[in-house]
Simulated scan of single mutants.
Amino acid sequence: MAARILLLVLLSFTTTLIHAYDPSPLQDICVADLKSPVFVNGRVCKDPKLAKADDFFFEGLDKPGNTSNNVGSKVTPVFVDQIAGLNTLGISLARIDFAPYGENPPHTHPRATEILTVIEGRLYVGFVLSNQNNNSLITKVLNKGDVFVFPIGLIHFQANIGHTPAVAIAALNSQNPGVITIANSIFGSNPPISDKILAKAFQLDNKVIDYLQAQFWVDP
């Protein structure tokens, strides 16, 4: 009897853990009220009777992003801030444009797994496992039509290894997956992290850290 109770408890925990990170919807739609001053975990819903087609619509994903920046890439997000109707649905996507040899630098999505499809060009992509798994690097060269998955929370990147522009579409299992670009967060934090702390962490001279913190870190 005790064994059965323990099994039921374990199963209940397992069932809870396999839910998506975003809360499940409890009604047909929960269009985000993007002007609401109320702060909740997600977005406040507006009255469903006020919903309109434009709440579930985004246009322009066919247009190339401007990649004329230091990293040579541009991410066009389609998150809940762009489509209010995504609220509580647990999905979003983005278009990523790459200049020749441009890159989407190492970053993480703290709230989502990403699945990437190459639309044009040739990309070198990869992610790094945690300390627990020896920080192993897993990489792959992707061609047009190829698909690759980046597990939730892990540092990953994409780089165009061709001499022509590249395009990819990323889908994520959160309405607001979040983005932490590693270089921006470490060397471009506001206020700055102490150069002494970073110098020790990276085993670099303080002057090198000061130089890095003085750079203009681009948000792709």
Rank of each mutant, 00 (worst) to 15 (best):
M1K: 02
M1C: 05
A3H: 04
R4F: 05
I5N: 02
I5S: 08
L6T: 05
L7V: 10
L10T: 12
S12R: 10
F13S: 13
T16R: 06
I18S: 03
A20F: 08
P23H: 04
S24T: 14
S24M: 10
P25Q: 08
L26R: 15
Q27I: 02
I29L: 02
I29F: 07
C30R: 09
C30F: 03
V31H: 06
K35W: 01
P37V: 07
F39R: 15
V40I: 15
G42A: 08
V44Q: 10
C45M: 02
D47L: 02
D47W: 02
P48A: 07
L50Q: 10
L50F: 00
A51R: 00
A51I: 06
F56N: 12
F56I: 11
F58H: 14
F58A: 15
G60S: 11
D62I: 09
K63V: 15
P64R: 09
G65Q: 09
S68H: 13
N69G: 05
N69V: 06
V71L: 11
G72N: 07
T76E: 02
T76K: 03
P77M: 05
P77F: 04
F79P: 00
D81Y: 03
I83D: 05
G85F: 09
N87S: 15
S92V: 04
A94I: 05
A94C: 08
R95F: 03
R95V: 15
I96H: 00
D97T: 07
D97E: 12
F98L: 10
A99F: 02
E103C: 04
N104S: 02
P105D: 02
P105W: 01
H107K: 08
R111L: 10
E114G: 09
E114M: 02
T117Q: 07
E120P: 00
G121T: 01
Y124N: 06
G126P: 12
F127C: 13
V128R: 08
V128H: 00
S130H: 08
N131E: 14
N133G: 00
N134R: 13
S136C: 08
N143Q: 14
K144W: 01
G145V: 10
G145S: 04
D146R: 10
D146V: 06
D146Q: 05
V147T: 11
V147C: 12
F148D: 04
V149D: 07
I155W: 00
I155F: 01
F157G: 13
F157S: 08
Q158A: 15
A159V: 13
A159L: 12
G162Q: 05
T164A: 11
P165C: 07
A166F: 06
A168Y: 02
N173A: 13
Q175H: 11
P177K: 05
P177E: 05
G178D: 10
G178Q: 05
S185N: 14
I186L: 15
F187P: 10
P191F: 03
P191N: 09
I193T: 04
S194W: 01
S194K: 07
D195A: 08
D195G: 00
D195C: 03
I197L: 14
L198A: 01
A199C: 09
V208M: 06
I209D: 09
I209L: 12
I209Q: 00
D210K: 13
Y211K: 15
A214H: 06
V218Q: 12
